[in-house]
């Protein structure tokens, strides 16, 4: 097996006295889709946020594409990187939020163009052309001049995905991308994500959509109480779970 694209090793994270991650290990190979399932409070969103250093780990380490995230190793110590270097790492990791977090005062096009122009120093004209192409890809070519509030939740999330893609990231992280959507809008967002999966984009998706996991995931990871309880192919984990906790969770959501 070649070196994993994402390598998470015994990661611990606490918020005050509450230990949210209690030693998580996870490997994701390039081109694979990993779906993380688990009850709320199991630490899956926190795990995702440590992968682009939105949360700092207390112990352990994470590497993406062969480089430590957020730290530099010297001897037996990990030194936190300067912000500039962390920001540069983040441009290679796309992140899609549960609540979209589009910039409400910028148009759809400006939302997408912002990062390529200011973080990657792309010429604005080139970035604008690329942005129009991405909007076309998520089916919103006609919404370039709209403001986020003028769009439905599903449309906003598709813009957010286009915005993450604009940096041409090596890895995409989705944090419950459909949880804030009305039921009838979930499908259009999942379709876009599936499309990306079929094109071989490496991604980690935290979600409650079991059907999506079954259809798209190469690996399903089940987390509970800050630990990875079990992982494997969708067939193994979803249809023949080995752990009681996985069975209990699936019996509630299926």
């Amino acid at each position: 097996m070649s070196a994993p694209m994402v390598d998470v090793r015994s990661v611990h994270k606490s918020f005050g006295a509450l230990e949210v991650l209690k030693g998580v290990d996870l490997q994701v190979r390039a081109g694979e889709v990993t779906v993380v399932l688990g009850p709320s409070g199991s630490g899956k969103s926190t795990l995702l946020r440590t992968i682009n250093h939105l949360e700092k780990v207390d112990q352990g380490w994470i590497s993406v594409d062969g480089a430590l995230v957020g730290y530099r190793r010297s001897g037996d110590k990990l030194y936190e990187l300067r912000e500039r270097e962390i920001l540069k790492q983040r441009t290679r990791i796309g992140f899609v939020f549960q609540n979209f977090n589009l910039f409400p005062h910028l148009t759809v096009l400006e939302n997408i163009v912002e990062a390529p122009v200011s973080a990657l120093k792309r010429p604005r004209k080139e970035a604008t052309e690329a942005a129009r192409g991405l909007l076309d890809r998520v089916g919103l070519a006609d919404k370039a001049g709209a403001y986020p509030k003028q769009l439905s939740g599903g449309q906003q999330q598709r813009v957010a995905i286009a915005r993450a893609l604009a940096l041409e990231p090596r890895l995409l992280l989705f944090d419950e991308p459909t949880s804030a959507l009305d039921p009838e809008l979930v499908g259009e967002v999942l379709d876009v994500i599936k499309d990306l999966a079929h094109q071989g984009t490496t991604m980690i998706v935290v979600t409650h959509e079991i059907g999506f996991a079954r259809e798209v995931a190469d690996t399903v990871v089940f987390m509970d109480d800050g630990r990875v309880v079990e992982q494997g192919s969708p067939g193994d984990v979803l249809d023949a779970p080995r752990h009681e906790r996985t069975r209990a969770f699936l019996s509630k959501v299926l």
């Binding site: 939105l54 920001l87 983040r90 939020f97 609540n99 977090n101 910039f103 990062a115 973080a119 915005r163």
Partner: peptide, 12 residues
């Protein structure tokens, strides 16, 4: 979330 989104996009 606005700041987080901007951080995730690598904005200075």
């Amino acid at each position: 979330g606005q700041v987080e989104a901007a951080q995730a996009l690598g904005l200075s």
